[in-house]
Design a protein around this nucleic acid. Structure first.
Lengths: 227, 227
DNA sequence: CCAAAAGTGTTCCGTCTACACCCATGG
DNA sequence: CCATGGGTGTAGACGGAACACTTTTGG
């Protein structure tokens, strides 16, 4: 390979994933973190991450890392940014590119989760983490909240079929404030791409709640979203 | 130095700067670009950039790069993101972190500009550029627009003293739509941190226009912005 | 029979938008 | 004296926020 820039120093590149999930049982937004099992920083809480290979783009590396952890593919992911302070890694210099992902918790194989030693932690109760990971999380959260408000990505955090109350609880968890039920439902009704099905969910309530579905196809043609 | 991760491949890191300026003479938003003077891609239009040194953080590297080009410091800069597609650099692999900056055009020494061979180009008329630089610009522009709407950073693009018409033209250029003069001024009047001075600008009009100033101190105490 | 969640409209208020004329001055 | 940009207020439309009761059914 031709080398044009040989006089410059190279650095190690890693990706770190902020994996958001929505816990339907307690209506809390959570992320996956675990105890670091390598030096430096062994034993500290940490995001799941890995090094970027020479044969993959940053996005591909993030995809692969997430797949390693969860076995899932075609997951909604967005870059948070690059983190490159000199002191961010006590060993040698590592620049890390953070990504956030939105996954449906129920699609995540519990076995895999345990194997990797990660757990779902309430976004409001994230412990002190390794290096700059807390900063990554707060930046990711801000971006994710912004995205959720302006684009229909919240459905990535829910099952294919969901009740309106579940959807509302999700938006409440993300926005950090309770919402008015009637106003919320009024807005939903105006979005044709959120379709009511004939199915009834009898788990979460005695009376039963209508199940809804996000029609991605209908959205691309439609295009008006605001929550 | 202790080496923890020696088995992983390292990559070259660069920063690229999207430098926004507002041209008061034609009320257009512009960025600084030049013809690339190194291989690969010699002669193609390109953002100004440079490689990250081993002894500086990413933010510091972006600062330094901007200072090299403009001689300016304490400039408003924000990271756009990391760009790391495999094919983005025809030579060897280079991952680039893009930053955007907002500068007051008149603070930029014309001699320095010519020395570096860069010019101000209307944001609406950016030519095809080297590698993924066009993508960087469009991403930067989106972030910058968002920032301008929600935080008082537009003043970075103007002289310390400015007329309301200049401010309005700036927001029109950024938003891509003309604004109503009376509504615009009404909003300004509600922001106490935009202070009217006793000074009159006689350059841009015969009658003369009041000059305003952004009071940064008053803002941090105040905190309500919406344009 | 009652606890618990689902479902459903209307009114009010504040915000945003549209809109037109007089003023001051340099040339 | 007129062309040019500076400066000012109001009314109507619209969208967002507040708000309470009935329904269904499992236990």
């Amino acid at each position: 390979m031709t080398t044009f820039y040989s006089e410059f120093q190279k650095v190690l590149l890693s990706v770190d994933c902020i994996i958001f999930g929505f816990d339907l049982s307690d209506s809390k937004l959570k992320i996956l973190i675990g105890k670091r099992n390598m030096d430096p920083g062994r034993g500290e809480w940490s995001l799941y991450g890995g090094f970027v290979r020479g044969d993959e783009s940053l996005d591909e590396s993030a995809d692969r890392t997430l797949r390693e952890l969860t076995g899932m593919h075609d997951v909604f992911m967005r870059q948070v940014g690059a983190f490159g302070n000199l002191d961010r890694d006590p060993g040698e210099r590592v620049v890390s590119v953070a990504y956030y992902a939105l996954i449906n918790v129920k699609d995540y194989d519990e076995k895999l989760r345990q194997k990797h030693g990660v757990e779902w932690v309430n976004i409001e109760k994230i412990p002190q983490m390794y290096s700059d990971h807390n900063i990554m999380v707060s930046r990711a959260r801000k971006l994710m909240r912004q995205k959720m408000k302006t684009e229909p990505v919240g459905f990535e955090l829910l099952p294919d079929l969901f009740t309106l109350t579940q959807l509302q609880r999700l938006y409440e968890a993300v926005g950090g404030e309770t919402l008015d039920k009637r106003n919320f439902r009024k807005r939903i009704k105006e979005m044709d791409f959120i379709e009511k099905t004939e199915l009834i969910d009898k788990v979460s309530s005695k009376r039963g709640a209508a199940l809804y579905r996000f029609n991605k196809k209908a959205f691309t043609e439609d295009k008006n979203f605001k929550l």
